[in-house]
Amino acid sequence: MSAEAGHGPRLRDLLAPPARRRLDELTAEISATPSAVATRFPAAARLVARGPVRPGDPSGLLGPTLEDLVRLVLLEALRDALADVPGRLAQEVTALYRFGDSDEKRAVLRALDRLDIGETAHDLLGDALRSNDPRLVAAALGPGGHRHLDQAGWRHGVLKCLFLEVPLAAVHRLAERADPELARMVGGFVVERVAAGRGVPADAWRVLGDHPPTVRALRAELRSPHADRRTAAELALAQRRDV
């Protein structure tokens, strides 16, 4: 599920021999001429392979797609080729992201934990988290976001996932990194939704657990004079038992 799936050997097993050969050619080309990445990175899905890695994740919300993994290999080749040129890797990764379509941007985000590009990674993740594109937001909370986002930015990213209905399974090491401040923010979101008589994503409870202030507020909503709010509170509390 996480970027561990992105290691070269694993991808090679997923590729048919001709695709494997084309990937080797592209990697060799970028190692010899790093600037070739500008046109090879966008063309990589067409030239090598594309599609889901896991049948349960057709659009690559929870983890990398085949083309993400192909592009990761190209970025690792670029990283190694530019190891002696300070700043150059960050510059090219920024350009690949800026001029990338959604698929290319997602691949850059998913590779950020493998690239030592300092502040640049933080900037690209910030751009992704400002978008309303569920696939970019999900990718920004993968291993790259885990490594490069500060705690405040990471919490807002998790909350944005709930807003965009991105499953929290997309968030790398959620349980480990979740803190009381995140629970407070998610609790506020849940209570606000119920007060509007609206549904709550079940995944919210993965962060909340039995967060007492939230549970208390929802129990109070069970006695609301408004039927829609009572119903929303019942449904939300029932979801909590199911998680």
């Binding site: 500008a38 046109t39 090879r40 990175f41 966008p42 063309a43 350009a95 001029f99 379509d101």
Partner: peptide, 10 residues
């Protein structure tokens, strides 16, 4: 200068 990046896209 940037056009070749776009010409490579699907």
């Amino acid at each position: 200068d940037v056009l070749p990046r776009y010409l490579a896209k699907d």
